[in-house]
Amino acid sequence: MVTARSSAWVPHAVLITGLALVLFPVYVAFVGSSLTASDILDAPMSLVPGPHLFENFARALGAGTVKTSGEPVAAMLLNSLVMALVIAAGKILISLPSAYAVVFFRFPLRRLCFWAIFVTLMLPVEVRIIPTYKIAADLSLIDSYAGLTLPLVASATATLLFRQFFLTIPDELVEAAKIDGAGPWRFLIDTVIPLSRTNIAALFVILFIYGWNQYLWPLLVTNTPSMTTIVIGIRQMIGNGDTQTEWHIVMATTLLAVLPPVLVVLLMQRWFVKGLVEAEK
């Protein structure tokens, strides 16, 4: 074996250092969320967790901070959840049929349709924010879930991924379906969607994280506290005003914001890795 050598501790040492670098900021946030405001202001804060963890989380969830007009973080979590789920489900729901249409049919303007969708791959929402904002305003989508999600659903990643997968479905399956008298609708429901199950799961994980972590668009399109997502809420809690930042609550909120996507990655690691690798092919 090439790998069996005496210096086997080197990789472990490097990896443990890497782990420490990855985990340290999160650990300090965890400690911060278990202290009181004055414990943190009395710098440097301790690196041992204090006894106020549940108290701080309860206050964040139930009452938020003064700077966020007392909007409870529980409501922000709900907004983030709705946004992430609608974006993930929405992208899959509009991409799967359109990829199916492009792959399994021949019709006029088919190439044009494909390219029109494909071009959206290139331009992230960040480079067209202000015109998109104006359109959202014209359609009175500001401060609505539709405004929060619809512009982010317009992206071609999922379509491209489904298209690639559909191209690998053997022609024999299509022929067999035709011989059995199944039309395109039956074939979609009975064959293509069941075959796509793992692709759908992988894509869902990636898109959920993408949706949950959105920042610039929610910042623009929501103004009322009741529509704030948790990632934006943290920004407002820190603010840049004169009042003291309540760091213990900010850190509790930060952990609450990180927890759902981290759980998704941990629990669905297999699909997550698959989705990440395939989405970039």
């Binding site: 890497g18 900021p25 994280i209 972590n213 900010v250 930060t254 981290v262 990655v265």
Partner: peptide, 18 residues
């Protein structure tokens, strides 16, 4: 090592800011 992927860039910023 996969965990930071799940963290929003904005939140990564807050963690380092802290």
């Amino acid at each position: 090592l996969l965990l930071p992927y799940a963290v929003a860039p904005a939140i990564a910023g807050v963690l380092w800011l802290f």
